[in-house]
Amino acid sequence: MANAAISANSSEPSAPDGDRSVAKAPRDYRNIAPYFFIAPAVFVMLVGLVYPVFDSLYLSFFDWKIGEPFSKADNVGFTNYLRMFSDPDVWESIWVTFRFGFWTITLEMFLGVTLALMLEKPIRGASIFRTIFILPLMVSPVVVGLIWRYLFDARVGWINYYLGIWFGIEPQVWLGDAELAFFAIVFTDIWQWTPFIFIIVIAGLQALPSEVLEASRIDGANWWQQIFLVKLPMISSILVIALLMRLIDVFRALEVMYIMTGGGPGRATELLSLHIYNRAFDAQLLGYASAIAVLLIVIVTVLSAGILIIGNPMKDKSDV
């Protein structure tokens, strides 16, 4: 590896001229040094992130239950996969995930972008408000789940109380009814993540060159035209990245639902990540859960590849 580095580097035209003689010196550590620098981090990521992905793939071919040693687990070939594709619970969980993703991301993008366009102008005290807006993002997901479980509680929850006082609506068992529980987790997610879209979009809007906006105004663009023909197209890559990041988060989400509903009632709020967790540690089917995990990896990898292609901050174009 080191030799390859030396040969690669000495033929590197972009290396500073003065380095050329140094690069040939046998004691030159500058060519091997990068590998020493990245090695520890790469090792931790290989063992902690990459190995588990391949281990999931391996385990997915076994019928392994919690409590029995892995050496006793049977290799069942593709049985887990065949079972997965014909398992209505898996499909329901995927459907719930997509439905959840559709509602949360649509509403968060709409609210976040609208609010950002409304409130982008610099104004006195803006930094205090921005500090407050990131609070929902900083609170631990477990605590977010607990707070909203309390607010949606059928007996002591504040939401039932105010719906009754203001609108005369009978108390609802929010987290015990499939549709209402789904609404509750969507609502919670919107509370927590709309600020993220808002902050990102406002940063993008404020980074737009003022000349372009000035020019479009001189050309006679009205307020709507400025938004839809100038501003939004100019921040479109930001919007796409924000959308993809939220989409990936939907497939990673687990903790808030685990606390609020545990995935229930039935499987009404069981997103794919939570489904894997429940299959593994509630139903105790580690091998089968691994097969579903492989499916999740495939989905997330495809989405991540999208982000990489659209906006890789480490791509060479930005290497100036």
Binding site: S56, R252, I276, L296, V300
Partner: peptide, 20 residues
């Protein structure tokens, strides 16, 4: 590039392998 890709690994995927 690989660093960016592994950033997206869902914690739920780590659960079973980490447990094992």
């Amino acid at each position: 590039n690989a660093t960016l890709l592994v950033r997206m690994v869902p914690p739920a995927v780590l659960a079973v392998p980490a447990f094992s």
